[in-house]
Amino acid sequence: MRIVCPFCGERELGEYTYLGDAKPQRPAADAGEDAVYDYVYLRDNIAGVMSEHWYHGGGCRAWLKVTRNTLTHEISAVEPTAGAGAAKVGV
C-alpha cells in the first residue's frame, strides 16, 4: 500500500503507523465518564470507506487523516490533521 503524504509525497506503507478510526473526538474536560468511555473504547469497524488516523513516523512525523476503503485498500483522500505541519503562523 502507498500513501501520499501531503508533506512528503507518495511513500510506502512501511513509513506509516496505523492508529484507527479518526471519527471519535476527545470529549471536553467536563463531559463525564460515559462520554470518555465511548471515546476510548467504542470504535466503528466499517467494511467500506473509513476515515483513519495514520502517523508518518518514517518521514515528517505528521498525523494524517486518511480516507480508505477497508475492503479494497483504495485511498481516496489524505489530509493533514489540524495541528500537522509547520508552527502556527501569526498565532
Binding site: L19, R26, H53, Y55, R61, A62, W63, P80, T81, A82, G83, A84
Partner: peptide, 9 residues
C-alpha cells in the same frame, strides 16, 4: 505528536 496535532492543535 498525536496530542499536539490531533487533540491540542
Amino acid at each position: 505528536e498525536f496530542c499536539r496535532q490531533v487533540l491540542l492543535p
